[in-house]
Write a protein that binds this DNA or RNA. Sequence first.
DNA 1: ACTGCGAGTTACCGAAAGTAACATCAGTCG
DNA 2: CGACTGATGTTACTTTCGGTAACTCGCAGT
Lengths: 214, 214
Amino acid sequence: METSRQTEQQQAAERRREELLRAADRVVLREGPDASMNAIAAEAGITKPILYRHFGDKSGLYRALAERHTDALVASLRDALDTPTGRRERVEAALDTYLAAIEARPQVYRFLMHPAEDSRAPERDFEVGRHSAPLLRRLGEELAQVVDERVDLGPGGALLARTWGHGIVGMMHAAGDWWLRERPCSRAELVQSLADLLWGRLAAAADRLGGPGL
Amino acid sequence: METSRQTEQQQAAERRREELLRAADRVVLREGPDASMNAIAAEAGITKPILYRHFGDKSGLYRALAERHTDALVASLRDALDTPTGRRERVEAALDTYLAAIEARPQVYRFLMHPAEDSRAPERDFEVGRHSAPLLRRLGEELAQVVDERVDLGPGGALLARTWGHGIVGMMHAAGDWWLRERPCSRAELVQSLADLLWGRLAAAADRLGGPGL
DNA sequence: ACTGCGAGTTACCGAAAGTAACATCAGTCG
DNA sequence: CGACTGATGTTACTTTCGGTAACTCGCAGT
């Protein structure tokens, strides 16, 4: 019975891989995204070449690691966007979900934002533009899809939805990053402020007296 | 006359520093943000230790380099925001200025977004949060200041302005990054889409038929 | 001529990614 | 039983790069 043995081995490799990822997770949580391959291997109780056999190179490992966390975050964001309430409430719920996640585990969040993909891709025409974190791209695309599914934006709506998806995610990211560093207000207040921005309060506000407004 | 000699030498050092920065600029433009110190030194016609004498370490050099470009970008953004027209026109002008800049010199832009500041700060409590590019922080603060100066946001307006400053810059950044990678539309169209987002068009849009809207 | 100082060099260290070559132990087939 | 295969693991190496120590050289000022 060779096929069953083959699958057995594949399953074993899969489990091993999971275990290695969990070890890597621990190290990244403890030492930050600049953890060395040696450190990760040591945490897993093995040595470097095995990591390389499983993940190819450091980007491979990090990609696999990021995928797990990203999937989890995307899932909770989808939940937030799926609650049957008004649009504003859902946007607020999504913002709050994201912010709660980065607040709860800032190291993971920082790791996910790391480009960290020097990716062996020498054919790239000087890799213009490809530098934003995979997490941001993924979230942007996900949000774009949700917007396009549920909001009627007329002709050209699909493109508009994608633009907004990436834009809103970027807004959330940058504001969240700033908020996490300076903690200038509560999470709820930040959520309100950002939702207000998306709801056009900047456009509606009055100019300051004494000069032309922004 | 010892003081004059001292200033002469300081001026000479300053010029040297400028020249080194220009060389570094060329290398970064040619090889991307991962250029080695050796390469930069070679381009400047000298060797590594001199770079270290002038800039301390790699982060120091990169910080100095980033400052130049950031200053330039901030200046043109301020110009765009200072044209005496309506608020929407100014926002569009600022967006277009930023996008034109990253379109014209994507390598520089990519370099500026690089965290690249391992900064000798071991006292940090695990450097939570401090990971966004200095350029983004700076732009966020600048925009916050402009908004707070010119728009009347009522009580708590200063905090709101800062939140929005960082949020809008993040939106611009993420959308610009995506646009640069995929080029899904013209620059003008992107500007319009983003301005529409800021003007509350998401909030105003109708739900899609057949289900609850976002 | 002597001294001190700043610019510059060579030659090195240490850390980290990635790899080659070897060792070991399982089960498979003659 | 004994050789073959393949996965798992190791040690020890190479390369690259940031950073530094120690030395040299030229030049102003006394």
